[in-house]
Design a protein around this nucleic acid. Structure first.
Lengths: 220, 220
DNA sequence: TTGCAATTCAAACAGTTGTATGAAACTATC
DNA sequence: GATAGTTTCATACAACTGTTTGAATTGCAA
């Protein structure tokens, strides 16, 4: 195993190049040139180009998911198995938004790579994203426990819309900045999180009795 | 010009193949084989592969945009230059959702092509989407007129969230169906439109005076 | 029919791609 | 310091890509 020098040089170079130029026009030769290693090193250490991309994405992605679950678990434990919907939603979209937006993150290689991965959708990344459903089910479960009066359908739609706002804002952050002529401050991540959580909460609680003090305990 | 037979055969074959297999692994040779024409015909009639893709996307895209503007204009004229925010939002997301979702559209080639174009993002399509900002500005303007009390920033965020919910639902419709075990009915397009419009409206009107009966008529 | 332009065609081009190979260099163990 | 295992390297491979070429064919007007 030795020093891992070549291996991590490839990972770093690949992440930087993909972040800068996208998956479409970065070749293995570009990567090994940037990393200062031999062409065959990629296949030796990773097996194939797709597995290299997959490893890059998986690394960042499990970090985000772990943080999401950590926040979710903390919230549910504090509330005795039932967390306020705002906190659940914040655990869902917060880590993702914080990982991609913000003044310092915006320029970090990892952040720009994840934005790329969210815009362009190459096969190895798509395969990984498809496995994310089980992860989302945990949030759907927590949301159901938080809003027992709400129908499953409404909960799923709320989850869908929350993810929609978070991911779309990341993906189209440049366009929103241009459209609003800089008036929408995407560097203020916590403001963005608050907006998404606020709207998603309204989507999930509108037209029902106030969750904080449920008056209808009839059918549960 | 003659019969356009070859030209339209290429367009139809390309749209079908891209819809089925995505942009990533469909070559010009696949397209001309499906269309039953010669390989050189693509470059003869379209100039390049990218221009073929661009023409496919532009055709469907201007149809949607025209319908959006038609609905917007009709709404504003009826309201004497100021339309209810719900109607504006419906004009914004309705045509897009109707074009991609629904039981019959879902399987139409055109619909599946547009879903593909929304998932994978190839350069020629991205270039066209970037020109869409001027189009969105018209909706931002209408929304500002509809909600004069609302700050520009809030309006832009509302517009952003409305598009987010519509596009994400289209893009991830399969995942939502799987996650909800079929409970979320994406074939009922009008229900989806209503949900998106409803949430976006809440996002734009929450914490303010009711729009239907504005009490502050100070300016104007 | 003749002539001319538009279209189609087979074939080749020029370049790029990810991957495989086998020898060379290195590293650590005994 | 010889040896076995790991890692690096230059190079070749094989296949695929969009595009071009120039000749053949077609269709229409004179």
């Amino acid at each position: 195993m030795a020093s891992d020098h070549t291996r991590s040089a490839i990972l770093a170079a690949a992440e930087r190049l993909y972040a800068d130029r996208g998956f479409g026009d970065v070749t293995l030769r570009d990567i090994v040139a940037e990393a200062g290693v031999n062409l065959a090193a990629v296949n030796y250490h990773f097996g194939s180009k797709d597995e290299l991309i997959a490893e890059l994405f998986v690394t960042r992605s499990i970090a985000t998911n772990r943080e999401r679950l950590r926040e979710l678990k903390a919230a549910e434990e504090e509330g005795g198995g039932r967390a306020p919907i705002e906190v659940i939603l914040r655990a869902l979209v917060g880590p993702t938004l914080r990982g991609c937006l913000g003044p310092e993150n915006q320029r970090s290689t990892a952040a720009r790579f994840m934005i790329r991965a969210s815009i362009e959708s190459v096969p190895p990344i798509r395969r990984i994203k498809n496995r994310e459903i089980d992860h989302l089910r945990k949030f759907a479960g927590a949301m159901r426990r938080s809003l027992p009066d709400r129908s499953d359908v409404d909960v799923y739609w709320g989850l869908n819309f929350a993810l929609a706002m978070a991911h779309h804002t990341i993906r189209e952050s440049e366009r929103l900045t241009k459209l609003s002529e800089g008036k929408c401050d995407l560097d203020d991540v916590e403001d963005v999180v608050a907006r998404v959580v606020s709207v998603a909460t309204m989507a999930l609680t509108a037209g029902r009795t106030e969750q904080k003090a449920p008056s209808k305990v009839a059918a549960r």
